[in-house]
Simulated scan of single mutants.
Amino acid sequence: MSIIVTGADGYVGWPTALRIADRTDERVLCVDNFARREWVASLGATSATAVASMDDRLAAAEEQGYTNLSFVEGDLTDRAFVDRLLAVHEPRAIVHTAAQPSAPYSQINGERANETQHNNLQATRNLVWGLQEAGLTDTHFIETTTTGVYGAPEFPIPEGGTTMENEGERDEVPFPAMAGSWYHLTKSHDAANLRLAHSQFDIPISDVRTAIVYGAGTDETRADERLATRLDFDYYFGVVAHRFAAQAVAGYPLTVYGKGEQRKPFVSLDDAVEGLARLALVDHAERPAAHTVYNQTTRAISIVEIAETIAAVGDEHGLDVDVEHVENPRDEDETHKMEIRHEKYDDLIDGQSVDFRAGIDEVVGAMNDRRSVIESHEDRFLPDMLES
């Protein structure tokens, strides 16, 4: 038996695989097709941190004592590959972090939207159907979907479902898909497919709805520079906190649209990895309920707070950072106070929470150490008018 981590070359997947391997003697199998590297490179962008080859990563991991970590290259949209993978390794748990993760990338044009939807949905369907047909329906399937499936409603977002009332009758129903991009809609479909997989196949499902993840590393990735995870800062693959940090390092003002008081859910990389590792390692008898939704977030943070925190941290790193408010070109509520429940996720990670400022300090420091990389790619801060 083994634990499989898909998307294990990625920003969240790699440190998750390391943490799981550090806490178990079981075989931890990393699976990836290196598509994330290709997508970022296709846009002329790069990671702020140097990302080692998988061979170098595995060599460094073994030197650190991770003798139970191995890797298989393959495409999860290829059903034959998935069937072989499951037949050979018979996983007791799968942590599925493989996906095209960028909403802006999925919005570039129809080709990228189709690529995103095919990649994300086909991979998940192949895995759950593969488990069913291989007789592995007791395998704990843990997927990172996204809090973006909820949209931005004016009421507190529940952790998974909600209550609907009609003609005096009430029932618990899944939260309606309110995705705002072709990427986010893939995760809405995944969430529905996971419910169906549990209903039809009785596969135990943990649907981990991941917030915006920030941070430059974890204890595991800091142990050797070859173990570093990626740190994207471009418009398409860099989250807002990382883009702002890169702009600060490059000497650009941090531009906040309008008031910038609208809040978004965030979780540190370490807090995200911790929850996934705990779910993968939980004993069979202590697993969560057969189908459980977690809101993988620790707090909501406003855009202006992000900018002001980065400006303050930047000053401590010797950077002169200005925050500028400009007229908002978007039709949006600049003061939306998103509320999102996350009690189940808090319980899962025992209430641990990386301080936002501390996490941002490491991001700014990592980017400042590689300032030449940031400055040579500063044209990636804003979107290209791509025609293809």
Rank of each mutant, 00 (worst) to 15 (best):
P15S: 13
Q200D: 12
G148Q: 12
R125S: 11
H198I: 02
A223G: 01
A21C: 10
H377Q: 07
D171W: 13
H291V: 02
A241K: 00
I374E: 02
G151S: 12
K187S: 11
S199H: 14
L254G: 05
Y345F: 15
A312S: 14
P104K: 01
V88K: 12
E261K: 15
H96R: 01
A289G: 00
R380C: 15
E169C: 00
N114P: 00
M367K: 00
V267A: 07
A61Q: 06
A191L: 04
V273K: 02
L43P: 07
N126Q: 11
L386I: 13
T292S: 11
L69K: 04
V323L: 12
Y66Q: 02
A8N: 02
H317W: 14
E308C: 05
G275E: 03
A35G: 01
Q296N: 14
I360A: 01
P288C: 01
T309V: 08
T144S: 15
A228N: 15
L231Y: 10
H336A: 14
G160R: 07
D190I: 15
E143P: 09
D333Q: 03
F266A: 05
G251P: 05
L131S: 10
R23I: 00
T147R: 04
P104V: 11
N193C: 06
L121N: 14
T229S: 12
A99P: 01
Q247Y: 04
A248K: 09
L281S: 00
H377S: 06
T309I: 06
Y66S: 02
T145F: 11
V249K: 11
A197T: 11
D224P: 07
D202S: 14
A280N: 03
N109F: 04
A60F: 11
T67I: 01
D283G: 11
D322G: 08
D78Q: 08
G258A: 08
L319R: 14
P153R: 06
N33F: 09
F237E: 13
D331P: 02
T137C: 13
W182G: 00
A216S: 15
W129Y: 13
L85R: 01
F141I: 01
P265I: 03
V321Q: 09
W39S: 05
H342P: 04
N166E: 08
A123N: 05
N109H: 13
L281Q: 03
R222K: 13
A245H: 09
D55Q: 15
T292Q: 09
R341H: 14
P253Q: 03
D32W: 11
G258H: 10
I108E: 06
N120M: 12
G13E: 07
A87M: 00
H284K: 05
H118W: 13
H118N: 13
D78F: 10
L269C: 04
M54Y: 07
